[in-house]
Amino acid sequence: MSDIERRIVAALADPSSEPPEGLFAPGAITWHSFDEVEAPTVPDTFATLRAIRAVVPDFTMTDVRAGDGYAQYVVTGTLPDGSTLRAAAAAVLHVEDGRCTRIEEYVDTGQLAPLFAALA
């Protein structure tokens, strides 16, 4: 895993959900396959992570594998009803001049349905 991919994944997995200074380019975008909506990575993606962790405090990324421009991982956590969230995901990470400019995350909505229900 290159340093930039490692830093991006670590930032997203960090329970503090605060983006490290200089890691994301101004105007960086995050897109998800499940809703096909583009949103600013900073602050929107990190605000979403904070909202998820308010409901699923142990929400994290495990089994992380990353390389030149991609990351594969499993998001896990304990839902409010005590059941386990487990969703395999992959992300394409676009980097220019040492900064992340775009994240494209692919994840199965069926695996995320219990999380969406808990957030509703």
Rank of each mutant, 00 (worst) to 15 (best):
I52K: 00
S83D: 10
A66P: 00
R99T: 13
L85Y: 03
R53E: 02
A39P: 00
T76D: 13
E21Y: 00
G69M: 07
V55M: 04
G82N: 12
A11W: 04
V56S: 01
E96R: 11
R7Q: 13
Y73F: 15
R65G: 13
H94W: 11
I4T: 14
T101I: 08
T62H: 02
M61H: 07
V75T: 14
A113T: 09
E38I: 05
P19D: 04
V56C: 03
V74Y: 00
A87P: 01
F24V: 08
V107N: 00
R99A: 13
S2L: 14
A90L: 07
A39Q: 11
A54C: 04
P15S: 10
L23F: 13
A113S: 10
F34V: 13
E36V: 09
A71T: 03
R99Q: 15
D81R: 01
R86E: 12
D81L: 03
V56F: 01
P43R: 06
S83E: 13
G98A: 06
A113K: 08
E36T: 12
L49A: 06
T30Y: 08
V107Y: 03
V95E: 01
G67L: 11
P26R: 09
V42N: 05
A13H: 01
E38G: 15
P40T: 05
I4F: 07
M1V: 14
E5C: 12
T76E: 14
E38Y: 08
V75H: 06
R99E: 11
F24M: 05
G110K: 05
A91S: 15
T48D: 15
A10Q: 11
L23T: 10
G82D: 10
A87L: 03
E18T: 15
R102V: 04
D108L: 07
F116C: 02
A47P: 03
D63V: 09
A10L: 06
A120K: 07
V9Q: 00
C100T: 11
A91P: 00
H94V: 14
V74Q: 05
E104H: 06
R86W: 05
P43F: 08
L49P: 01
D44S: 14
A28M: 08
P40M: 05
F116K: 00
D35Q: 04
D63H: 10
E105H: 03
Q72T: 15
G69N: 03
Y70W: 15
V37M: 08
A89S: 12
E21D: 15
E18K: 10
D3G: 09
A51D: 13
T101F: 07
E96P: 00
F46E: 00
T48F: 15
R7L: 12
G82M: 12
T41C: 09
D14H: 06
V107Q: 06
D35C: 10
G67I: 12
G22Y: 05
S2R: 14
I52Q: 01
T41V: 10
T62G: 12
V92R: 13
R7H: 09
I4M: 04
L79N: 02
F46V: 02
V55N: 02
R99G: 04
V64I: 14
A39K: 07
T62N: 09
A88T: 11
T60I: 03
V75I: 14
P26H: 09
I29P: 02
T78E: 04
E5S: 15
